[in-house]
Design a binder for these strands. Sequence first.
DNA 1: CACTACACATGCACG
DNA 2: ATGTGTAGTG
Length: 666
Amino acid sequence: MENPSGLNDRQMEAVHAVEGPLLILAGAGSGKTTVITRRISHMISSGIPAPSILAVTFTNKAAREMLQRVKTMFPGKVPMPHISTFHSFGAQMLRESIESIGFRKNFTIYDSQDQISLIKETAREIGLKLEALDLDGTAQLFSAVETGRTPWTGQEKHIRELFDEYRKNLQIYNAVDFDDLIMLPIRILSEVEEVRELYRSRFHYLMVDEFQDTSEAQYRLLKLLGEGCGNVCVVGDDDQSIYSWRGANYENILRFEKDFPAFKEIKLEQNYRSTKQILRVANRIIANNSNRKGKELWTGAQEGEPIELYMAESERKEAEFIVSKIRVLKIRHSLQFHDFGVLLRANHLTRAIEEEFLKENIPYQVSGGMSFFERKEVRDILSYLRVIVNPDDDVSLLRIANTPRRGIGKKVIENLVALSAQKECSLYSAMTVLRDSGQKELDGSHSSQSPVAEFLSLMDDYREKLQTPGKAAETVKALVDEIDYWGHLVQEHKDQDLARIKLSNVESLMGSVEDYEKNPDVVHPSIQDYLTRVSLASRDDIGDKDAQGRVNLSTIHAAKGLEFPVVFIAGVEKDIIPHGKALEERDTNVEEERRLFYVAVTRAKQKLFLSTCATRRFRGKPVTAYPSPFLEEIPKESLVVIEEEEEADTSQSADFLTEMRKRFLE
DNA sequence: CACTACACATGCACG
DNA sequence: ATGTGTAGTG
């Protein structure tokens, strides 16, 4: 570092350019996070009120870490800058002002799973054939249309009808989907002047991290907030743009230049992360892309060791190779498990490696993939809470109405659906209508008690109970007992161990409610706020507290912004990276796949391993795999190919001996 | 009407 | 390998 502040000149310049629009092009490992936090703390020190600063990051984790760093710089300072993701900013804004466009404040946030359930439900309602419908594709189309990325292209008349019904249902259910978290704030800010003024007077300094991954809609939101004060700072790297599939558009950089013509541009090109060897390879790879801003990273770091490529026979061998390298390097360089990152293109590729890690007792942590909150049993309980908070939430209601079984079966639901269609109301309202009308023949009653009425009184009862502050965790536990969820799990699974695991997940959920409730940073804890957080939680939000001492197994996407002394990129194969599906979609996607590979390579500080398999299991069957064409873009002299496995004995004790031997020979 | 079993299709990335 | 839809059974 060049001067006493610990920052180089360019970084200093970025920290001090507080007023007016600013574009920071920050290469991988160029100290971007440091610059952003230093810039915030510089602003606060120079008298700018902290709450007038709004910083938007890409993940909750990044937001938390940034806030933490600022807090450390100003211990005890009370109003802090607002630091969050776009989505959680949107959610908070909606909690405050959604009534101005006709929703109620207790709205539910539907994630992509809920969204798909709702599309399915809606399709059923309007009599669409489900088998003819690609639900995932439809959800993606809806999102593209909603955010203005794709216009309707004619022909799909029934799809448009489905879309309109879907939107209508969201309104009836008092629910918003992920896209709404961006689109509705845009609508409010454009249409409701008071709210626009309120927000513009609240935030005078805006900052966006990972700008290359913001969508056009997010950019519009940013522009609406920032065009009043003009103090908008965006930080990004076009070479690391890897989210175009969900609307990210690095052309936002061009838009920014056009919308804020007085902008100042600063390039950060000195890399503080990787060795010369690693950086050289990264530069060579990315040089094959054509659409670039143009940037050449350099480093003053040591030359380092060459990159190694291991060509394994099978996934199994690949995993064994990774394990043995981790063992050896860990001892040889006194590393910890968390100094290793294993990066993969897709989630399911983690499986083979996970198995090996389990077998070999390597502690690991998976980021990406199924999150805790996506587990069936966890969603069940969360659905109860969601219905309690927002009874009109039909998606959650359908999930729990008969879980555990309570006699509200298909027939009863059908009756309720008919009734709700007729009254244009939610199922819950239909339930109350049914109860009050006393039409016992419709509600599944066998004896004197009506299951529908009982269900309603259960919900009312717990809605009441959850009002008591500080008792949420306790109340949730009481609810789980009262519905006998344990009995339900036991009944559903003949594998009792599985049932026990699921119950322990439910217990973890209750633990998370308790943690939330006791968290001193939460000013007014409520179940509604808890549910909002959960809906916005990213996949690695839970468990990152004990990431210490574990190997990080992660998708490349989820590894963005992270770094490790030792990185393995596994499955560097044709059709994996670049991904076959991605290339099918658009031929320009090769460049994004190459950026993805570039991101993966630039995570490594000291040592980088690449690996491929000759055969890989696909849909249960072994299939021949080929090395990735990207490997040919790496200069031969920068790559050492490990032809044969050095007879890695995978039994732990033998391995330990080998390591000891190596250690003493050095 | 509810539950079980079996067949079937399907697997890129994320807030 | 997993989830979902459906047909068939109690």
